[in-house]
Design a protein around this nucleic acid. Sequence first.
DNA 1: ATCCAGATTGGAATCGTTTCCAAAAGGGCG
DNA 2: CGCCCTTTTGGAAACGATTCCAATCTGGAT
Lengths: 392, 392
Amino acid sequence: MRTPDRPTIADVAATAGVGTGTVSRVLNGGVNVRESTRLKVLEVIKRLGYRPSHLAAALSRGSARTVAILVPHLTRPSTVARLAGALAVLDEQRYDTIVCNVDTREQRDHHLAALTARHRADGVIVVSIYLDKQHLEAFHRGAIPLVTVDAVAAGVPQTIIDDMAGGRLATAHLLELGHRRIGFVGDAIPRGEPDLGFTSSRRRLLGYRRELAAAGIDPDPELVRLGPHGPAVAAELADQLLRLPDPPTAIFAASDTQAMGVLSAAERRGFPVPGKLSVVGFDDIESAALLNLSTVRQPLEHSGGEGARRLCALLHGAKVRPIRQQLPLRIVRRSSSARPGLDLPGGGPSHLFAADASRMPDERGRSRSHAFRRVSDIRLGGQNACRMEWVA
Amino acid sequence: MRTPDRPTIADVAATAGVGTGTVSRVLNGGVNVRESTRLKVLEVIKRLGYRPSHLAAALSRGSARTVAILVPHLTRPSTVARLAGALAVLDEQRYDTIVCNVDTREQRDHHLAALTARHRADGVIVVSIYLDKQHLEAFHRGAIPLVTVDAVAAGVPQTIIDDMAGGRLATAHLLELGHRRIGFVGDAIPRGEPDLGFTSSRRRLLGYRRELAAAGIDPDPELVRLGPHGPAVAAELADQLLRLPDPPTAIFAASDTQAMGVLSAAERRGFPVPGKLSVVGFDDIESAALLNLSTVRQPLEHSGGEGARRLCALLHGAKVRPIRQQLPLRIVRRSSSARPGLDLPGGGPSHLFAADASRMPDERGRSRSHAFRRVSDIRLGGQNACRMEWVA
DNA sequence: ATCCAGATTGGAATCGTTTCCAAAAGGGCG
DNA sequence: CGCCCTTTTGGAAACGATTCCAATCTGGAT
């Protein structure tokens, strides 16, 4: 097509008056190549503008050093955190990563089919997506290295958390504060629109129920509201709870995103948080700290990293130690939860944003306290501005 | 290595008693193949568990149908939105997408070098990252199709917004409400830690200054505070502004993320929003709607999609129409901004979450109003729960 | 039966590397 | 100078598809 076809390694070899093997050796490591030859070849490479074909190299070498990662609902903060964690590890291990975002079953099946029907990635990481027998069978038949994150799958190395225990943690926290009427807001599959097989909300609900039962509290079905994932729906569900004749004094939301919806509803209904309503979320995404949301922390970024690490091990031919790797959970107490009946006269200040924001974790998830120092009045665009700088 | 080496197209051909060409034809489209032969070949393929090598096919065909996308700070909501937009289009166009996350200059240069030194992707999308002369030269030399999103680059198809105009929009909105003392909170490069060349905050600041000047307002350098990106820093910067003897009545933050920090600081300092302080952000990320943050909306997801679309056009050999494609901005008025001096006795309710959350855009960014209907008391985990369903 | 156009088919050439092996070139030493 | 052991080197043989061309089949028309 192109008039001057891209130069190949043969062109380089011919021009430099050496063999293709020598050029290849110069390109990869350059062992056992005389320095003078090396320089000559490099010079020709630069002169011809030669760029090796990754494809050809990969084919010949037998591996493209490429993995694929399948994530659902890329825009959710928890998904992004996991993806970022995986990418960091894969990057470090020099793997290229093909990202497949999946919002529907069709997309899921299409990507899974593409990944299993042809050999395009050395291995696959599946995040938060339920794989049924047939999916697993396809991977097995193709002998495609597979790990999952936040999803159980028989015989597949998996990095998960105990959602049920997490549900208990959150509920126990509220019980310990003295709450007896505790609501739950979580996910349900929209009718006729089958989901991707998330089970976490369901299992968190189970934990909530177990913990209530253990405390000898009669479950009230009215207090459990489920709907499609997202803050808007969660707000509406919470609003229904708050309009009950005998509203709950606390709500456990199956995710921080939903907890934000709950906070929103509380604000609208005039339920000061935590004065008249305590709220606990799940995940500990970045905004949770910003909003001072009490929550169950799970190591999101780390889970992605672990999945990636384990896939790499698999690709190296190593056996992955515990097939099921379970990451720890812990409750993070912030100011959205407190003893019930603390309602101050006049409503009191809303809890939102109320705590010391300078102690929030920064964007990378590392928690550290910040101090500022005025560095200089710098000139910027012809005007002055105060520029501040971190002090560790 | 593996005992039974993966079967190749030759194995299939031999087993089925046909030529490799026929097998290839069956695999791709199956034109001009007798139905009986087709079935026989398919049977053998299934029986042998044959999976075509994407690598070999790509090498032979001459293209891997793979593009790479370089994004900075993957975890930022605005970045994710852009990435999701691009992925959706590339997916539809049947391209595999290699995602490269970049947090430092070293990572940027490493990925750019890897992408330009070898032929691994058919084309590249660079998001929000400044490319200098040498980077561009490398792409040019290699004749690698390149587009940028949210970044200007000479001669490269680019999808951008007018940040300066955006800065003016936000400021004009506040001026129109009657504010005169308007603060600015934005990004500055941390000392000794050069950034990736973001210029948007700087240009928004410029717009802020121009608009103030146009209104005949003397710029007060004290009112402009810059620091590393992130809500925590923004909160501290805003706090400094609010502690001034003559604090601003409004603050324009260079991004919604930073605006959230500003809201946090306002809450802590006891400045009700919008009663005593108006806040305007930039981007219109999802949480902006949830927090009722007035902001300058830019089409984030769409920008990624456009970048992808334009890259595809480039790969098809088409000329991309306007080299510089500029997407529209508009101010979104929510309840974080109002006329100054509206402070109600007793502080009044905080604006946060105050509006009708059920009219928030849902997760996919489509705005629609929701209604709920109680569908059934379903049994879930042996207990009852209320399950709600959308009504369009 | 013969012929011919069009539908099938086989298989060699090709894509651009890596890798292996044998050959050539060095180099140290007696 | 010759010998032997290292380096260094050239080039053919993979890697596993696609593609093209020529050869072989079809089946209907004559």
